[in-house]
């Protein structure tokens, strides 16, 4: 997730209260809406994204970064990648996953600076992770309601 779950819940409650409630006229529906806001506000400080999702991402990213660094041998790019990997904290899982995403960006930049023929294996290691992580991210998503959201 790009924004913290607390910020998301705060936004949901704010929108329901400020933008939806004024247009809800039935007393019962208004009461139900207040109940939704009440539930959201009380969930806020008791929720976190499943650690297993972050742990799977971190394990895959770590393996990719290690392979990329190994593929580059003694090149300075390898040291840069290894440094970014080592700088990632061991936990909590969300923080480690975020730090490893930043390390992957560092690795991509380091590989990009190499001559095209030098970075192939390292680039492939990162690409493999990007593909796997994209599929993991998609696996937990529900079908989009974009059409309904657009048409109201």
């Amino acid at each position: 997730m790009t924004i913290p779950v607390e910020a998301l819940i705060d936004g949901l409650a704010r929108t329901l209260t400020d933008a939806v409630l004024p247009d809800v006229t039935s007393r019962f529906a208004r009461g139900q809406l207040f109940a939704v806001v009440d539930v959201l506000r009380n969930l806020r400080d008791r929720l976190e994204v499943k650690a297993a999702l972050h742990e799977a991402e971190a394990a895959s990213a770590t393996a990719a970064l290690e392979r990329a660094a190994a593929a580059l041998g003694r090149d300075a790019a390898a040291a840069r990648i290894a440094g970014a990997l080592a700088a990632a904290p061991a936990g909590p899982p969300a923080e480690r996953a975020a730090a490893l995403r930043a390390a992957l960006v560092t690795a991509l930049e380091a590989i990009d600076a190499l001559p095209p023929e030098a970075g192939g294996a390292a680039r492939a290691a990162i690409a493999e992770h990007l593909a796997a992580q994209t599929m993991r991210d998609l696996a937990v998503l529900k079908p989009s309601l974009f059409g309904e959201i657009s048409k109201g």
């Binding site: 997730m1 790009t2 924004i3 998301l8 936004g11 949901l12 929108t15 400020d18 933008a19 998503l141």
Partner: peptide
């Protein structure tokens, strides 16, 4: 407060 902005988080 436009919740349509929030859906981008899971659309990325």
């Amino acid at each position: 407060t436009d919740l349509r902005m929030a859906i981008f988080d899971h659309q990325l």
